[in-house]
Design a protein around this nucleic acid. Structure first.
Lengths: 131, 131
DNA sequence: GTTATTGCAAACAATTTGCACCCAC
DNA sequence: GTGGGTGCAAATTGTTTGCAATAAC
């Protein structure tokens, strides 16, 4: 198990830990670029990639193709509107024991999971019906 | 509720229905481009977008940013390796009743959901430990 | 004829990569 | 001094958009 982390990786982990919400790579870049020892965008991506492989951050890829990163502590799931893109967080999570079983059954080290529901929110639903 | 579909949309729906696996937009394009009345890539994207909003296809966005489309009948979930990208389909799905409850609670018309587990597969796990 | 649909190519945006520089050890 | 880590800019890739040509009704 690799334990060494680069300074950039540490900075990113710290940032993610202090944030409630998930951040995109670009968000992180904007946040960390300033300062005398600013961070480059490529470094952000490289660090996130490494952290991902260690299971220290979790990634949620939006349908836009953009990825959102968060420190692994959170376990939030979402209800996402296919029309306006609004994303509502939900608290419930009915899969923890399934995760445990899958891990054993498939010899697969599971770091985290994503659960997303897609459809139309109450604002977009009426619009669809008139279309 | 819109019911009219363009010829392109119909062709794509037909194709997705005959396929067991999910297809990327590019896959669909390759499949439908030939023939005297070939389909353009932009049309594929536009048709998929429309079908998505009607809840007729479901979309799974890979961590690569590429999206896979399938006809809405399938309800497969996956175990995906963060290192090699291998994706194992799993049969179980413990969220159907939660989906029902959320739909009511949030006034949200849910078309489908995605459930993905991420980690390291048994082949990549040993490599990580040596790193 | 009018309107919606399509194909093509150019535009976009997020991400990745090549390479030279630099800091830590 | 050596090697990994980094910044910059160029390259890549999936997707979207502008627009003129075409099909549908």
């Amino acid at each position: 198990m690799k334990t060494r982390r680069t300074p950039s990786q540490e900075k990113i982990l710290d940032l993610l830990d202090t944030q409630k919400r998930s951040l995109s790579a670009q968000d992180i870049y904007v946040e960390l670029r300033q300062g005398d020892r600013g961070m480059g965008l490529a470094t952000v991506y490289r660090a996130l990639e490494a952290l991902k492989l260690e299971g220290l951050v979790q990634v949620r890829t939006l349908t836009s193709g953009e990825s959102l990163y968060s420190s692994r502590k959170q376990d939030k799931h979402h209800l996402t509107c296919l029309q306006c893109g609004e994303s509502i967080a939900i608290g419930e999570c009915p899969v923890r024991d399934l995760e445990q079983r899958l891990q054993t059954k498939h010899h697969f080290k599971i770091f985290y999971h994503t659960l997303e529901f897609f459809g139309l929110c109450d604002r977009c639903l009426p619009m669809e019906e008139n279309a």
